[in-house]
Design a protein around this nucleic acid. Structure first.
Lengths: 292, 292
DNA sequence: ATTTTGTCTTTTATCTACAATAGACAGAAT
DNA sequence: ATTCTGTCTATTGTAGATAAAAGACAAAAT
């Protein structure tokens, strides 16, 4: 097994969805564009569609023969890229499991446990090391530095610097900048979710990321934007892991977001700074509370 | 060739230096400690020393038979780790050579050119990507974003935030913090070099890194300290590449450093901030001037 | 009672191989 | 004249293999 064909499987699944809405498929390049894959993969998808009698395919004629059934789709486990699977396994181990700071991380063991080669694990660890949670001892093992109180404080310190800077930049964006429209949309989603908070509070995590990323992006600084990855991954797994009082917490955060959004929309730097500070402060407290 | 034995060769060379100063070598664990390698490597070194008749080795008795000669040492090219060689080749290509932004980077080609396997190149690129100069298109090539004006501006923006924060923290360090002693030493080296600037201005680059790293470290924030790597590598290669007016530039920077150091030593936050700002401003200008 | 050595096992760093995927080009179809 | 398809080549992602290096443990030496 040299390379997983997850790109193919994932694109195939998405193609089935397209296929359920039309009677014929477009040209190969067009389909490739729509699915975000190369023609090689498109042709593999078309071949399989033909094989399972979903379409008849003769050169430009690609006629849909029947609606796709659930059994036509590849199971979702098979469409995740290896990197995603490794990330999940790893985060589960270090965040959920009893992972003490100072623990050694073993590439081989990790690879065996996840059922993959060492190369992929190694590359994952290298990529992951920029999050500041692990550190390499050359020619030897990795060391887990742990999701500790210090880590959270260091992370939030930088986050606050960056977000304050970004928010200050945000209010100076020209009227026609698309960020304003996106901000309005995000505001609307906040209101929708708040209106049905009991059922939809779980959608906050994703919305939170969307909002803060938008703010960070207005910095036009790649280092600030890239750093948001670190924040996002920490909060992402943190939300999954720590579900106590989620409904309440999320509701409060969304109220803060709305105040923050209104302050940005006011274009007044002072107001924006204050609202930003308020929200960041409570976000930091929430994060710290969950750390023993 | 599965793994280069650069650790062995480098440690062997360093062992020869030790060996030229004593008549007998210590125990294996002790030697391992001194050279920073495992006992396995120590034993390989001892074996080779015995082979070339540098020592006689019988269990605990390791008697030096003769002084090492230049020909006993491994050539320096062989002691650099693969990662270092890849970094140098790569930086030469992208900084010195005509490397336009948007250029594609090809792992295979790079590997062939450097004379190494693709895995190492790949891992280097992943590690290097955090410097914001390259970006990966999944399942496809890397894209060079280029050492452009924007890059320099984004880099210095973050640098200034971080260094101002660190300098503010520095002045609050307790009297007995070792940073104060180190600062004094660094100050002394500045004066020494300035006294003989015509001959020694080339030493500035290293001193610059030492000084700013000390400042950044006082932040006690891993993200701030780690970010200094980015700054260091950029300035390191930048100095190598752009040598116009080096003597003059370095002298001026050192004067600024001395003012900055004095301001830190005054423990007055206002003064420190001002001196820091002044120096950062001129550092930014210097960097920008060298970019077309 | 430590510390050192001899021996052995485990892990890392690196290379090579190969399937999946991207991408190039000429001829075919509109 | 453009767009699409068939075919072919090049590159990436991943596994597996292997030498170098780290490290564990018991027996030997101080």
């Amino acid at each position: 097994m040299a390379k997983q064909n997850t790109v193919f499987k994932d694109a195939f699944n998405r193609c089935l969805t397209l296929l359920s809405e039309t009677s014929a498929l477009p040209s190969e390049p067009e389909l490739g564009q729509a699915l975000g894959v190369s023609r090689t993969t498109v042709r593999a998808i078309l071949s399989r569609c033909e094989e399972v009698k979903l379409i008849s395919w003769d050169k430009r004629r690609k006629i849909v023969l029947r609606r796709p059934e659930p059994s036509d789709y590849f199971p979702t486990e098979e469409t995740d890229s290896l990197a995603e699977r490794i990330e999940r396994s790893f985060m589960r181990r270090i965040l959920a499991g009893g992972a003490e700071p100072g623990m050694q991380i073993n590439e081989l063991e990790l690879a065996r446990e996840i059922g993959t080669g060492t190369t992929s694990v190694r590359e994952f660890l290298i990529r992951f090391s920029r999050f500041g949670l692990i550190e390499k001892r050359p020619n030897s093992h990795w060391v887990l530095k742990g999701f500790t109180r210090e880590f959270a404080l260091e992370l939030t310190e930088v986050r606050e610097m960056f977000e304050l800077r970004s928010a200050a930049r945000f209010v100076t964006l020209p009227e026609n900048d698309p960020a304003w429209a996106e901000l309005k949309q995000i505001e609307a989603v906040h209101r929708e979710i708040l209106a049905d908070i009991d059922n939809r509070y779980r959608e906050f995590s994703e919305l939170d990321e969307r909002f803060h990323l938008l703010v960070h992006k207005s910095s036009s600084n790649r280092f600030i934007v890239d750093f948001y990855d670190v924040i996002a991954i920490v909060f992402h797994y943190h939300y999954q892991w720590n579900k106590a009082n989620a409904r309440e917490r999320n509701a409060r955060a969304m109220e803060e977001h709305l105040a923050y959004i209104a302050a940005l929309q006011s274009r007044d730097p002072k107001q924006a700074e204050q609202a930003c500070r308020r929200h960041l402060k409570s976000a930091r407290e929430t994060l710290l509370q969950s750390i023993p």
